[in-house]
Design a protein around this nucleic acid. Structure first.
Lengths: 297, 297
DNA sequence: ATAGATTATCAGCTCTTCTAATAGTTTCTA
DNA sequence: TAGAAACTATTAGAAGAGCTGATAATCTAT
């Protein structure tokens, strides 16, 4: 299937004429007719009603028309991205982050950076920690952001901000009005945890073990957002990075309560491939991330 | 350019091997190599670094990879839409609306309808009044929504809800705390109007003329949203449908004040092509729109 | 019903893209 | 640091997709 065929179909839909479309594309009328026939064969349905003049799209034709327009739009964008990248020697930073960092701690840095370096193109994608290590090692992204970074001789790891861990429950929960929580209190609660492979889960388990807290895991999920939803609907309580709770605490759907025992936190890290030279833009971005909040003040 | 070539490129990027990609696509390794060469020729840049094993994408390659994934995603969606439309004889309603109706009055009807008729597919697009008449006449959409509908023997026009017109200004404006406004008061204000061809502009001009109000047009825009932004930043005042101001009034960025002279409003209409038989779903939807709010109560 | 305009179909040609064989790289191992 | 192993590039020739131009079929309007 040629992408150009989609363009031909769109023009046909707009011009309502095979011959005019042929003219526009510098092709014979016959070619247009055959392209359409092939499209109809491929999708096994009639796309235009030839019993009318000027021709008219069938309902199926309209679906294809709308869809084709969107596909083409994205394709054009891609082409122009590539050509501008080629000509302007545009710089680009590809970042892969775990959900919780990418959605909460990261955006302010990205925003600040884009204002400072407007001709650098930023690309952020979200993935699980495992995937992120893979992507960084494969060179698919320049920078990875993970919690509890593991060390690997093929990687350079820089410290990013520690994130405070707090107790979280919904406003109907009996503990929701406590000013602070002793970590032992959660022993009697239904606990919503991360999946066992998630680094933050392992980290929290170590803390709990240190305090001899043996809890009942009621559910396990692979990302913060789902844990929050479970806590919101009252399925249990959890321990999460405070920063990931900002919105829910502000709107009152969740309560975040600090621990009295200690200021628990999870470390987060910036990982890059050791043998891959960093672009200038990536270096600046890492500088920004590691400089903490100094630049914002 | 074959769409399949993009798929090949994505697989190549993921599998990092020409031969494995060839195997997956039931092609020879040579074919893959040639396809890539052609892609690189087309975009005039290197996409893959072959000096490494396994191969690695260049920065340009990454851009293409990301873009190609999105294009393919949209294309797959299109194919599945078409095939499900074909098999399930799925019904679909295409609606074209002017901005102000489509963004404010329409959504609640659409939502209600989608709950009642979940297997009907709704498609709403926004356009200028002129375009909407064109699209309805050409059969590109089933239903058009416009303000101050004009009559045409090729069209059937049904009445939709009248929309109350109110005076609008920003909160710093001297008139912003008046409980009501006499239409003559706006004579001394900088007025933000719709473009001269916009039906609502013509309608409002008639009202003003009836009251012998001769105003100073400071700016003209083709849609409500832009007019609102201009009023917000204090460029002047305007007359707009009350329903289009709900959000701004709620957040306090604009003030909407009724007129003391009369309850001005603009009529809105549902237009369909007279000679095109309406699908069952379209009939139901028009019933819903014309039944007013009865169904919601 | 017929003229005029438009689309479908067909045969033949052209250009594209495939395979298969082979040459050229890169990586890994001893 | 050779040399083997695994991979990718290149080339020629075969197969196939897609185009043109002529002509048949269809639709619209007078």
């Amino acid at each position: 299937m040629h992408i150009e065929t989609l363009k031909v179909f769109c023009d046909l839909a707009e011009l309502r004429s095979f011959s005019k479309t042929a003219e526009k594309h510098l092709l014979s009328q016959s070619a247009i007719s055959q392209q359409l026939a092939q499209l109809e064969l491929e999708h096994k349905c009639q796309l235009v009603n030839r019993k009318k003049r000027p021709i008219e799209l069938t309902p199926h034709g309209h679906i294809l028309y709308q869809g084709a327009k969107e596909v083409l739009e994205r394709y054009e964008k891609l082409k122009s991205q590539l050509s501008s990248a080629r000509s302007k020697g545009e710089e680009r930073i590809n970042v892969a982050s775990i959900f919780s960092i990418g959605m909460h701690a990261l955006p302010r840095y990205v925003k600040w950076f884009m204002v400072e370096y407007p001709n650098v193109n930023m690309h952020v994608e979200y993935a699980s920690a495992d995937k992120i290590y893979e992507m960084v090692l494969a060179g698919d992204v320049d920078i990875g952001l993970v919690a509890v970074p593991r060390h690997d001789k093929r990687l350079n790891v820089y410290e990013f901000k520690d994130e405070r861990l707090v107790f979280v429950c919904n406003p109907q929960h009996p503990l929701s009005h406590e000013p602070e929580i002793d970590i032992h209190q959660i022993m009697y609660e239904r606990f919503i945890a991360f999946d066992k492979e998630v680094p933050t889960r392992i980290w929290i388990d170590q803390i709990l073990h240190r305090y001899n807290v043996d809890l009942q895991v009621a559910m396990e999920f692979d990302n913060v957002e789902t844990v929050k939803r479970a806590v919101e609907i009252g399925s249990g309580v959890s321990i999460l990075p405070e920063i990931s709770l900002e919105q829910e605490v502000a709107t009152g759907t969740l309560r975040a309560i600090p621990f009295s025992n200690d200021n628990f936190s999870r470390p987060t890290g910036i990982i890059v491939r050791a043998d891959k030279p960093l672009s200038r833009a990536s270096k600046y971005f890492i500088d920004l991330l590691t400089s903490g909040d100094k630049k914002f003040v």
